[in-house]
Amino acid sequence: MGHGGESRRAQAYDGELGAAVALAQSGDEAAFAVAYRLVQPGLLAYVRGLVGDDAEDVMSDAWLEIARDLGRFKGDGAGFRGWTATIARHRALDHLRRQRVRPRPSMLEQDVLDLPGPQNTYDQAMEAISTEYALELVGGLPRDQAEAVLLRVVVGLDGPAAARVLGKRPGAVRTAAYRGLKRLAKQLGAESVTDEASQTLGESK
């Protein structure tokens, strides 16, 4: 599919994931643990983008539901990622409603952290950024853009799957992801974002 970064990585494991899920559905708890380890990091990162520090709690709730409904799921590894992302998202939104807070990660005070600011060079920024900084950047996006970017980048969902998770049209999600990435790039010091070789942004599979 040509996605960059994590999505490619996630998809590389989809075969293994699909097999693990199938086994788990027939009762194999070791296989369930394999599936857990494959999807949890991405889901946790996604949820963290929505609820911040409460991400672990939200994901615990989500996994209760995932385990309970595992027998209902039908699909392959990629489908499992989409299905679990949907569940995780619902739990995250429930959490936000209970807390009546806006979906922004709870960040520490800026001056406490040694956060790279705009004065850092482009080279530095593109080399690596801290988790906190990345969360702050993503948290600063409009929520539809943040979700679109996260689902794509950390959960590794393709356009249609992300659209289904978000309940939106694929075109809208694609646009939101593009805009989000563009904005992030600017904040990191890049002048613009190009699609170039990866063709990820123009893709609409």
Partner: peptide, 27 residues
Amino acid sequence: HRVVTAADLEKLLAAALIRDGVDAGAE
């Protein structure tokens, strides 16, 4: 102008946001 590819940016974000490994208790 600095131009960044989407792929690079995505890798960067993924690297920053995703923590490898899982919490044993949670698992």
